[in-house]
């Protein structure tokens, strides 16, 4: 237990104040994520999953408690430093893909490297490799509108992976896809995880969640369960 967790949340709360009304989207949540894990985050709509994800992804800061990335309290970093960490250490995948419509696939994939100060030549070379890894190299010069939803999501995953991030954060990555395409995307995530990539994935689909070894459940902003299959199974067998 000496290994430092990649991410650690300690009594994290996030309260929004609009027109004097306070809404606590995340309440007193604590957990760690270790290198190499794949975690599903589940919960009903409005339970605070995206809010939690934004804090893990350094897009937002907790109102109370602390988020640590590799031991560093992210609230103590400057805004610029958090941005740079997002470029190098975090890979976002969104439900609606969020590709830049006016750039083709390879330019979209290369985009995070612009903010890592990588030269154009190297950016494009690495984008090609990453597109190859998600099976989209043949669409490198297509624009998002020329791609199907599943293809766009693959390109978006390539973009999330290009800077070799510590963690990939996916907010309902299959939410806009049919079940077959969704399964393919999920298989891609599973394959990535087998290579050691840490992944946190928000999902509504219990079927998807069962494929992740660990599932965190939220309700009304509170953590209601945190189960790891690999941990439970041996315990169960030990008990029986």
């Amino acid at each position: 237990m000496t290994a430092l967790p990649l991410i650690s949340l300690r009594s994290v709360s996030r309260t929004y104040r609009t027109d004097g009304v306070a809404v606590t989207a995340v309440r007193n949540v604590s957990f760690d994520i270790a290198q190499g894990e794949i975690v599903a985050v589940m919960g009903p709509s409005g339970s605070g999953k995206s809010t939690l994800m934004n804090m893990i992804g350094l897009l937002d800061l907790p109102s109370e408690g602390a988020v640590h990335l590799e031991g560093a309290n992210v609230a103590e970093l400057s805004e610029d430093r958090r941005s740079s960490l997002r470029a190098r250490s975090i890979g976002f995948v969104f439900q609606s893909y969020n590709l830049l419509a006016r750039h083709n696939a390879i330019e979209n994939v290369a985009l995070p490297l612009v903010y890592c100060g990588v030269s154009r030549k190297e950016r494009l070379a690495r984008a090609e490799q990453t597109l190859q890894a998600v099976g989209m190299l043949h669409r490198a010069h297509h624009f998002p509108r020329q791609l199907s939803g599943g293809e766009q999501q693959r390109v978006a995953i390539a973009r999330a992976l290009i800077a070799s991030p510590l963690i990939v954060l996916a907010d309902e990555p299959t939410g806009a896809l049919d079940s077959r395409t969704g399964a393919e995307i999920l298989a891609l995530f599973a394959a990535l995880n087998r290579t050691g990539q840490t992944i946190v994935m928000i999902t509504h689909d219990p079927g998807i969640a069962t494929q992740c070894r660990r599932t965190i459940r939220l309700h009304d902003g509170e953590l209601v369960s945190d189960e790891t299959v690999a941990e439970l199974l041996p315990r169960r067998s030990a008990a029986s």
């Binding site: 805004e79 969020n98 830049l100 985009l111 995070p112 903010y115 800077a163």
Partner: peptide
Amino acid sequence: TREIGIRRALGGRMRD
């Protein structure tokens, strides 16, 4: 605006 959000999420600093 959305492009700006995407660029910020992907690591663009305010000054970028």
